[in-house]
């Protein structure tokens, strides 16, 4: 089969971009979408043109590196499937396919289809961790985890941090991502000591990065390649509210800063 691509090309964040059209050679319908781009890129290289830059790593739906808005949808046509696991058999011979980067203000384009998602890293740095003691390992099963909490935390932890939620949201909101991360830790006993600090810090960073607010369209969970539920947003909001109220009335030790 052959398809026609309309691909967003952009030299860097400061240069305006635009669509270029490319025709693929005859490609195998069982090729992945990214493999098809590899083929197109090899052709471009041989012709002396610059290949299309796009993000990818594991190509098996677990790392969250691939992105792309395919025909207007982050991660392409299928529900719960990342771009890297999208195959050409989902398209038809002769189709015109539009390929764009994830678009959001906090995700500036680096080149072509590659965007800078460091904002997510900074949100994680703000609170996406737990504290553990160093040195020898603790005994297995020393901390009992309720089954229900383990399951729910695992659902949240399935988030691969790709940013499709942001790209799909008309507000450019990152609340599905942050909600999943906050919940993943907050549901487990290991995440309790920093629970309040975490949600406050991560939400603060999220706002500082310029992500928008959630107005309950749920486009995010609809395009999420890991089908993260928007209920985690509600969970984060509850945690946030509780943390705001509790920290407002919790006396802090005057030694707190000195001890840091």
């Amino acid at each position: 089969m052959k398809v026609k691509l309309k691909v967003w090309r952009q030299k860097d964040a400061n240069t305006p971009g635009g669509f270029n059209e490319y025709e693929t050679p005859d490609v195998n319908p069982n090729m992945s979408f990214l493999e098809m781009l590899d083929v197109v890129n090899d052709e471009l290289t041989v012709k002396g043109e610059e290949p299309i830059a796009f993000d990818h790593d594991c190509r098996e739906g677990i790392c969250g590196t691939c992105s792309l808005v395919i025909n207007g949808k982050p991660h392409g046509p299928h529900r719960g499937v990342a771009t890297c696991q999208t195959y050409l058999r989902s398209f038809h011979d002769g189709d015109v396919i539009t390929v764009e980067p994830f678009r959001a203000k906090p995700f500036p384009v680096i080149k072509d289809l590659v965007v800078n998602r460091k904002a997510f890293d900074r949100i994680m740095q703000a609170g996406g961790f737990i504290s553990v003691r160093t040195g020898s390992g603790c005994d297995a099963n020393a901390i009992p985890v309720p089954k229900e909490a383990a399951e729910l935390a695992m659902d949240a932890a399935a988030c691969i941090g790709c940013g499709a939620c942001v790209a799909a949201c008309k507000n450019g909101s990152a609340m599905l991502f942050v909600g999943a991360k906050v919940s993943q830790f907050g549901l487990l006993p290991q995440g309790q000591p920093e629970r309040e600090q975490r949600v406050l810090a991560m939400v603060k960073q999220m706002d500082a990065e310029g992500f928008g607010n959630c107005t309950n369209y749920y486009e995010c969970s609809a395009v999420c390649p890991k089908l993260i539920s928007h209920e985690f947003i509600a969970r984060m909001n509850r945690d946030y509210l509780k943390a705001v109220l509790r920290t407002a009335f919790t006396p802090t030790s005057t030694n707190a800063s000195a001890a840091g």
Binding site: P51, A53, K111
Partner: peptide, 13 residues
């Protein structure tokens, strides 16, 4: 080998 582009920006090739 043909490596297009330059070394100063993102160059996946």
């Amino acid at each position: 080998v043909n490596v297009p582009g330059d070394g100063g920006t993102l160059n996946q090739s």
